[in-house]
Nucleic acid binder design. Structure first.
Lengths: 257, 257
DNA sequence: ACATTTTTTGACACAACGTCATATTATTTG
DNA sequence: CAAATAATATGACGTTGTGTCAAAAAATGT
């Protein structure tokens, strides 16, 4: 009746898990297909019918996996966030000063934005109430958790910086304030970047470099040691890319080719 | 045939302009109605049928004014941007240091966001390719122009600050960099604010105050005089609100009541 | 081989879009 | 003022997409 492999009478765990595998495999197939459609033809171009015909099943079957187009988009969003949080975790584990680490977070965000501009846009879609309202709160949960993990990572780094003496603890609200500042700056910059505003025509040539600079300006302003006068931020960027994001840098190179 | 009052054979300019007036009046009526629907029921709840019945005309008539739902949303967006640029212009004309003025811009943005969170969300809608693709490039133009006016204002202030000696002109790219930084920070913060992330649960209590702080931190970092150690930023906020945004503050008070 | 459960299917009812020939209303003209 | 003409409003129509569900098909268990 209610299609769901988890309910199979489990006598033989064998066939049971095979079914589960097949089910999840198809779920991924649907998401892959949908994401491709989304990127190539926009949200309008993504229709249950198209997805169904693409995977060579009928519409009904797709509905067995996802209750609506919106839940598919949610599914795509979750996969994107996983990719992103993965990069953040790598940044977190970098061996260096806390300041290096927090900078690495910003870099991760920026690289992701360059590498998958479309995905970022898709994540943005998920923030609109129109989409949200059609997704069960339960399914929205996982996305929220990942967002919280990211803020958690950032907050941890800032707190460690205070512990380590890199950052003066003048006021109790400092960690929140810094994280909010960096987060919104990165978020806003990436969004502006892909919002179709012709920066070049406005006389802005290197928005990405500027954001890197601004990030460090903000950190400096909080007296987060070592101040950017004391080292070469371009050099740091290079080092971080080499150490943490070699894969991504390669992909980026290929993309720009 | 092609309904448009601008085409009337203009013998008597009198009846001519009366018709034009009526036409434009109805155009506003449509936008008012649509905006209300949009705010109350989201993009899904905004339908040509509903708009039509609300203004007591038929669907066809609405289509005489706007070729699609999306163009209505565009129309709403333009009106919102006008409100916003109006606040920016007021900020620009503030009598005080250039630093005061640039801070006033940030304040304007933030006040607008608090006052009309829904409208900000609607403006965000217009950035999505799905909506954009259904609006004639010509109609998109006016929105773009307003965005350019805003950056223009900001850039002017920064350049004046350099001329006035408030801001050292260490590198040529500084104005762009500052504007981008402030813009993206404000943009990002406001967007995050209304993106449904439960800041309170993440331990962040006063995001708005934090943004005000961060704005000044960034300005300080560029050595924009007078540095925020030399005055009380909360005091400045108050002064600016009193001098420029009395109306808005009143509305805000009423809203929070 | 048969019974039972799971999965797939496509027909159906519905909602909204955008078009367009026709009806209605307003304006001009003789 | 009435006929002619132009402007405007209307709603039926064809189309596309949604989500549901009973029946068919396939897989599984005995």
């Amino acid at each position: 009746m209610h299609a769901n492999p988890a309910r199979t009478t489990d006598r033989t765990t064998d066939s049971h898990s095979r079914k589960q595998r097949e089910w999840q495999q198809r779920e991924q197939l649907i998401l892959d297909t949908a994401q491709q459609l989304l990127q190539q033809h926009g949200l309008q171009g993504l229709t249950m019918e198209r997805v169904a015909s693409e995977i060579e099943y009928s519409r009904g079957t797709v509905y067995n996996h996802f209750a609506s187009k919106e839940e598919i988009v949610n599914g795509i969003g979750i996969r994107c966030m996983q990719k992103l949080t993965d990069m953040f975790r790598r940044a977190q584990q970098y061996t260096g000063s806390q300041r290096d680490r927090i900078a690495a977070l910003g870099l991760a965000h920026s690289l992701y934005a360059q590498l998958h501009p479309m995905e970022l846009q898709q994540l943005q879609l998920l923030k609109s109430p129109d989409i949200r309202s059609k997704i069960s709160p339960q399914k929205q949960q996982s996305l929220l958790q990942m967002e919280q993990e990211i803020t958690g990572i950032a907050l941890d780094i800032v707190r460690s910086a205070i512990t380590d003496g890199e950052l003066p603890a003048s006021q109790p609200a400092v960690p929140d304030s810094i994280v909010l500042g960096l987060w919104s700056m990165g978020y806003g910059a990436n969004l502006l970047q892909l919002s179709g505003i012709p920066f070049a025509e406005l006389g802005m040539q290197q928005p990405l470099d500027m954001m890197w600079l601004n990030t460090h300006k903000l950190l400096d302003s909080y007296q987060w040691q070592p101040l950017s006068e004391q080292f070469d931020i371009q050099q740091l960027k290079q080092t971080l890319c080499d150490a943490l994001f070699t894969d991504e840098m390669l992909q980026l190179k290929q993309k720009q080719k």
